[in-house]
Amino acid sequence: MLQIKAKITSNKKFKGSCWHCIVNAPSLCRASKPGQFLNVRISEGLKPFLRRPFSIHNIFGGKLEILYNVVGEGTRAFSGKKSGDYLDLIGPLGKGFDYVGARGKRVILIAGGIGVAPLLFLSKEIKSRDKLILIGARTRDQVLCEKEFRNSGSDVKISTDDGSRGFSGRVTDLLKNIIATEKAAKGAMQLYACGPGPMLKEVCNIAIANNLQAQVSLEEHMGCGIGACLGCVVKTKNGLKRVCKEGPVFYAKELIW
């Protein structure tokens, strides 16, 4: 775990309300694993006051990428940062995805909205030639990172809630269809998901119903991000667990929704 001031080399609007930031941070890149996150101090002042957690989207040649949605005061301030500005970063934090077991297996990554963020890094690290990415969005204009996933050597399927692109309906319904048609491969199939809470809950239900192993990356408001304040807990079968420390990635079978 490091605390560094990293120089922003680019911070641009990516698509709609989604922004893409690149920082120069070789030491962080070396230490980071897919599914881990950074706790970012956006302002030197009091607005926003707390750090904001962002998953590590990608690492490339000593540069680290953050993909974020502008949703509130913190992310609005983040989008105001310019190339050349510095970001105070703590990371890599949390337990990332366990993807060693995915080697050689059929892997399905399920992303809802900005949930693509940690999955790109994961898709690049997973040693499997049999990767499928399901990208879900409300509408066609909000489909994120399709090109990036294709470039990482994965098959990509799109779903939109309004049917404007790809499968019409929820990404979890698309997942159900795929599992139903791929019954033979079930035993070896591994699911990884990130997205809104209701979507992740559904992924967990699908995984459990089909006896598949699934890991989901959760999002929570955090106080400290390092396990001290106990602010970001979620219910699991083994009691409350900290999203920042025992998570943000959890197995479907351990979570209580």
Binding site: P48, F49, L230, V233, L240
Partner: peptide, 21 residues
């Protein structure tokens, strides 16, 4: 302790309700 959500940011500060976990 208390159920989540347990923290939120407020102007120049934060609220917590950890509940002595």
């Amino acid at each position: 302790g208390n159920p989540p959500a347990r923290t939120c940011e407020t102007p120049s500060g934060m609220l917590n309700s950890i509940g002595l976990e």
